[in-house]
């Protein structure tokens, strides 16, 4: 993907809030039409990275380019025009949709704010239809909607300006299984239908296994692993990725053994005072003396898969062994009945 120019390109990006370094040196490319999943725990900086890419939070340092044009140095009017082409779908629709406005108003508000000419507007009915909602929802208020419906209104609002690039923040959090599945199916269909480019932010890797082409893993403001979804999920080369994967509760009782192999211990340290050397060493079972002193550099371990770990080859070999050992295995040491 480095051969053609990236649709969204981020270089050396830093976002600080006082002494808190939420995003601390991120390089990332997203190709046109690609779905990139960004995963990490709460406090990893993933939402701040998404907001910074969209310009909702100002960058402290670094460059962000969109379709080859530099967003940071561009003048305000040009940026405003470009911003219409990139939208965010917020995590909590009930908090991001004003409770006193009807759905019809909420869906036309983006046009008013951006002074969009009538001929360039989609009707409220068309927007509702895009997200598979009935037209009579237009006269309702946000509190009258279910969680899944409110999420769809949030998506419709983001689609109103016909963007090319969408950032989803935890698209399924708080939804039950069936509603989450329906929203994920919709998100994927819209991507194909309107040839959109996505950045999907989540702490849930099973969501990404369904929608993402590539996955970027973030820890304490930095990307620790980026690569094609299959490679990252099947042969993770960073111990943090492995830890996140082991923490996912798969809806398959036969995989009970998996969750005991590598629990990610403790919690993410404060980004005000990240550990020296490799930031992950305090929770890493592969950590050696070198990791406490020397920050790892990002290495390309396979085509398109980049990892920041001194011992990525050991980690990846372990991942491959485990996948091989998983075939049909059932941990009988833990009673199922």
């Amino acid at each position: 993907m480095s051969t053609t120019h990236a649709f969204v390109s981020v270089r050396g990006l830093r976002t600080r809030f006082g002494s808190l370094r939420a995003v601390d040196g991120v390089d990332l490319d997203i190709a046109r039409g690609e779905v990139l999943g960004l995963v990490g725990e709460s406090g990893s900086g993933k939402t701040t990275l998404g907001r910074t890419i969209l310009g909702l939070t100002p960058a402290t340092e670094g460059s962000i380019s969109f379709d080859g044009r530099d967003m940071v140095t561009m003048d305000r009017a040009a940026r405003r025009g470009l911003r219409r082409k990139m939208q965010m779908v917020f995590q909590d629709p009930h908090a991001s949709l004003s409770p006193r406005l009807r759905i019809s108003y909420l869906l036309t508000e983006p046009y008013e704010i951006n002074h969009v000419a009538d001929r360039d507007r989609s009707s409220v009915g068309a927007l509702l239809e895009m997200v598979e909602l009935p037209p009579d929802l237009a006269s309702k208020y946000p509190h009258e909607l279910s969680g899944g419906q409110a999420r769809r209104v949030g998506i419709a609002r983001a689609l109103a300006l016909r963007p090319d690039f969408l950032v989803f923040d935890e698209p399924t959090s708080g939804l039950d299984v069936s509603a989450a599945a329906a929203v994920l199916n919709l998100v994927k269909d819209l991507c194909d239908r309107f040839q959109l480019t996505y950045l999907i932010i989540t702490h849930n890797l099973s969501v990404l296994s369904f929608v993402a082409d590539r996955i970027a893993v973030m820890y304490l403001g930095q990307l620790v692993e980026v690569g094609p979804a299959e490679q990252v999920l099947d042969a993770p080369a960073h111990p943090y990725t492995k830890g996140l994967l082991s923490a996912v509760s798969e809806p398959d009782p036969r995989q009970r053994s998996r969750s005991h192999r590598l629990l990610l211990p403790g919690e993410i340290p404060s980004p005000r005072n990240p550990p020296p050397g490799c930031r992950f060493h305090t929770r890493c079972r592969y950590a050696q003396e070198r990791c406490r002193r020397e920050p790892p550099i990002v290495e390309e371990v396979e085509a398109g898969q980049r990892v920041a770990c001194h011992f990525w080859d050991v980690v990846r070999a372990d991942s491959r062994d485990e996948v091989a050992g998983d075939q049909g295995e059932l941990d009988t040491s833990r009673p199922l009945t």
């Binding site: 279910s146 989450a180 599945a181 994920l184 296994s209 369904f210 299959e230 999920l233």
Partner: peptide
């Protein structure tokens, strides 16, 4: 059956998720 089919898993990557119509 429908609940289990609706849950995304790594084993069924990329396939559309089953959903339950209505509420």
């Amino acid at each position: 059956q429908a609940l289990i089919a609706a849950a995304p898993t790594r084993g069924r990557r990329g396939e559309p998720l089953a959903t339950i119509p209505g509420k």
